[in-house]
Nucleic acid binder design. Structure first.
Lengths: 216, 216
DNA sequence: CCCGGTTTTCGCCTAAGAGTCGAAAACGGT
DNA sequence: ACCGTTTTCGACTCTTAGGCGAAAACCGGG
């Protein structure tokens, strides 16, 4: 019962970690989590655990990642972890408890147990899903410009993306909707960028990636 | 700890089910499974459970599907299930215990608990992965013709596929290797089909489906 | 008020991938 | 030798992707 909660902060992909106070693995950084309650399913339990670290309303997307079950993954009593991937928009209120921080995924601190591996799995899952679903909505603010969206995608994917291609890609799939408004230009001028929003803010698979299919 | 083991039999996608003898849900059809042992991880445990129903060497691919955890998904004591997707080649020995059968996925018998939902999830996962990975190897015999492969893909995907496109699609990704041999024609004659094999028989992601990426 | 600098947006071009179609190839049987 | 059957291959079209540069729309300063 663990979650790798990812969010783009300052043009870099971050993950929510808290520093353990007690053994085992004291002072190491761990993913938020806890134990499944008797009357919960794993999803509502995960949301309950997360509410101790962040405002759950900020978690725009939450999905199962995998089960981690190596018998020796944790010293002491055996524990099986159902890992989740959570996404928080980049404009969400970053206030977290004092022992908790947003850590850049590319340079993780010393992590507890197998949590580093889980973060890597979460990152790869996000990278894949950005291309064949509309998960981007869970990283972006409600309204955004193509430039800011480009920064978010570049941070999550790990490489630079072309703004023209990004816009065409999302428009072709009907994900992008122009709101009509425009953002004020920066201090050095420039053409004001028009504002967009995602058509849907719930996960949808936009590419069937089903080959060999007749067009209709 | 459950597995939806899929295989194409007689040009149709089937799933391995066994008929429960005792309550709850007596006489209903259930997925093979069991309880996690103390010294196992979920994968080896799943393989152990499956060995009671089929020859495990026939399971060409096994991956985690999802955790099913609704508190009332089973009457009586609570149980959390880690569900797996297993694939068995179409030429594998179909001998199974007397209470066990290959059932067509499209017309399932009355299933126990939430096992019907799990089978649907497994089928959807397979459909997706056929297009961006080489999982096809886990459905196919070691050597096969394009025609037989076409039947396998059509059964798994649920719609007809064009042999020309299938061959091009797999060849472009380097999955297909011509063995040089050829299969004897059927009773009504016809050009003998050449035999192919998959280049690799371990899961590989062939499409990065990473858009916006510069070609090099 | 014009002009250079800056940022966004749009259109055009080329290349690659997917799907359709039909002809040629290679068999068995009569 | 001919015919029906099945596989294989090439040619064609259409859509999508990526690259590039020009035009658009703003700033501030002279």
């Amino acid at each position: 019962m663990l979650a790798a909660v990812l969010s783009v902060r300052e043009a870099t992909l971050h993950v929510l970690l808290w520093q353990r106070a007690r053994a085992p693995h004291a002072h190491r950084w761990a993913l938020p989590g806890g134990v499944l309650g008797a009357r919960e399913d794993v999803r509502t339990s995960m949301l309950r655990q997360l509410s101790e670290k962040v405002d759950v309303r900020e978690v725009a997307h939450l999905e199962q990642l995998a089960v981690f079950s190596a018998p020796d993954r944790r010293p002491g009593a055996r524990r099986i972890a159902t890992a989740f991937l959570g996404l928080v928009p980049s404009d969400a209120d970053p206030r977290v408890p004092p022992d908790t921080r947003w850590c850049p995924v590319a340079r993780l601190p010393e992590t507890a147990f197998d949590h580093g591996e889980i973060v890597r799995g979460a990152r790869e899952r996000l990278q894949g899903k950005l291309s064949y679903t509309n998960v981007g909505f869970a990283l972006a603010p409600p309204r955004f410009t193509i430039s800011t969206l480009r920064v978010l995608y570049a941070a999550a994917l790990g490489y630079d993306v072309d703004p023209t291609n990004l816009q065409r890609f999302l428009s072709r799939r009907g994900q992008l909707v122009a709101t009509g408004g425009s953002a004020p230009p920066g201090p050095s001028g420039g053409r004001p960028a028009s504002l967009y929003r995602f058509r849907s803010r719930r996960l949808e698979v936009t590419d069937e990636f089903v080959a060999f299919r007749p067009p209709r």
